[in-house]
Amino acid sequence: MSLRSKVVLILLCMFLLYGIVDLIVYRFLIFPSFITLEQDEIRKDSERCIFAVKREIHYIDSLCHDWAAWDDTYDFIESQSPDYIAANLQKSTFIDNHINLLYYFDNKGKIIWGKTYDLETREFILLPDFSKNSLPESHPLISYNIGNTPFSEIKTSGIFLTAKGPVIVSSRPILKSSNQGL
């Protein structure tokens, strides 16, 4: 065997040995660290997403409580006054509060007033889930498990699936400003 062939064979063996060692180091030392790091980042990002959704649910629920525990709203449910609608239920209400959906129901589930607003197109739209005249009394948004709960704490909030996709919702009974009513 010539010297040139020996050198080429030694170099090939060295490259092959280097490739095998590199593959072993990468596969058993570096790659698992990347997997662990990626899983940690996924966990952190998931927790951030969950926190953001919970924060939005809390915001919508606080806004819902402000509107539901208000003497004017309580009177509106009884009188259905067009003055309340003119003063409070305009496009600006949806835009200023960054909400898409606002509905008022009586104790039987009949829609007193309600509209769905698309914030992107700036137009009112129909949402099939809320376009009927009423909801069944067992509907999760209007059936409350009252028990011994104070009126101000009675609520339903979370993510509701609609024909247009998931919607963050909150529902509370209409009360007077003193949190009395029903």
Rank of each mutant, 00 (worst) to 15 (best):
D22P: 05
D22S: 14
D22L: 09
I24E: 11
V25H: 11
Y26A: 12
R27M: 09
R27N: 14
F31S: 11
P32H: 07
F34A: 07
F34P: 01
T36S: 10
L37A: 13
D40K: 15
D40F: 12
I42K: 12
K44N: 13
D45L: 12
E47S: 09
R48W: 06
R48Y: 13
C49L: 14
I50F: 14
R55Q: 13
R55T: 15
E56C: 04
E56F: 04
H58N: 15
Y59R: 15
Y59P: 00
I60S: 01
I60Q: 00
I60K: 00
S62V: 00
S62K: 03
S62P: 05
C64D: 03
H65C: 02
H65F: 04
D66L: 10
W67N: 00
A68G: 03
A69N: 00
D71Y: 02
D72C: 04
D72G: 05
T73F: 02
Y74P: 01
Y74M: 02
D75L: 06
D75T: 08
F76I: 10
F76R: 00
F76Y: 10
E78K: 04
S79D: 14
Q80F: 05
P82R: 07
A86E: 14
L89R: 03
L89Y: 07
Q90L: 10
K91C: 09
S92Y: 08
T93A: 14
F94S: 00
F94R: 01
N97P: 01
N97Y: 05
H98Q: 08
L101H: 01
Y103A: 06
Y103F: 15
Y104K: 06
F105V: 01
D106G: 01
D106A: 04
N107A: 12
I112H: 05
W113F: 11
G114S: 06
K115V: 08
K115S: 09
T116P: 02
E120N: 13
R122P: 01
F124H: 05
F124S: 08
L126G: 05
L126T: 15
L127M: 11
L127K: 02
L127R: 09
D129P: 12
D129K: 03
F130S: 02
F130M: 07
L135F: 05
L135G: 02
P136V: 06
H139Y: 08
L141T: 00
Y144R: 00
N148W: 09
N148H: 10
F151G: 00
S152E: 07
S152V: 06
I154N: 01
I154V: 14
T156K: 08
S157M: 06
S157R: 06
S157W: 06
I159L: 10
F160W: 11
F160Q: 03
L161R: 09
T162C: 06
A163H: 15
A163N: 14
K164C: 00
K164H: 11
G165T: 02
